[in-house]
Amino acid sequence: MSDLAIETVGLTKRYGDETAVSDLSLEIDRGTVYGFLGPNGAGKTTTMRILTTLTRPTSGSATVAGHSIEDRDAVTPHIGYLPEDPPIYDELTGREQLEYVAGLRDLPSEEASERIDDMLERFDLLEDADKRIDAYSKGMRQKVGVIQAVLHEPTVAFLDEPTSGLDPRAARTMRNTIADLADQEMTIFLSTHILPVVDELADTIGVLHNGRLVAEGAPDTLKHRAETGEEGSLEDVFLAVTDETEYAETESEPTA
């Protein structure tokens, strides 16, 4: 079996005349955290949708957990996905929602219950687990969304802005959880705007701009190559590689 959790070759997605993702090639090792950065509209969500089989690419190919994304049935058992809006039902309680997803994933009841309780406790949701989700705050909904994305211990978890709406304590719990999951050999594909989160967690960072991968590398490597020429912050890197003028001039290979 390949050591790569995700591999894409020339992945491209067009909507009419608009190119959302252009010639994207990635190689992401198993058990790592891949921080996926980019300005609004860069194509991050489209990339995640392609890799989770929710959208078909216009051209190019990709494998997730060793399976082609063309084969949805082969890919889905190995992935978990938290989209920007957590896919949860208002009418269910947090626990019912998680039991529902565990059922959909065909997890045995006892095993599911254990995992659900463990995760609810970890995210400080146990006390509110039997309240209906329509009474939850944004952060609580986000927590339920994250738990259900990793409940079945997938090979690859795609998390779109997992810390969105979380208070500092919950955000800390989320970061710890992601680190723990990566320690358990789960690959995390993490899309976020919050650079310190990526800085802290990611083994590799990819920066997408106008659908193209304009920079890729370990956080420290990228920081060294910041525009200033000195050791800069991840923000410097982000601003440099996503600068329209700079990008138009270089139009180059990823800064790796």
């Binding site: 889905t76 809006d85 994933r105």
Partner: peptide
């Protein structure tokens, strides 16, 4: 809203 979760489960 739940379609992404449903469609990314095997069955």
């Amino acid at each position: 809203i739940a379609l992404p979760a449903i469609l990314t489960t095997p069955t």
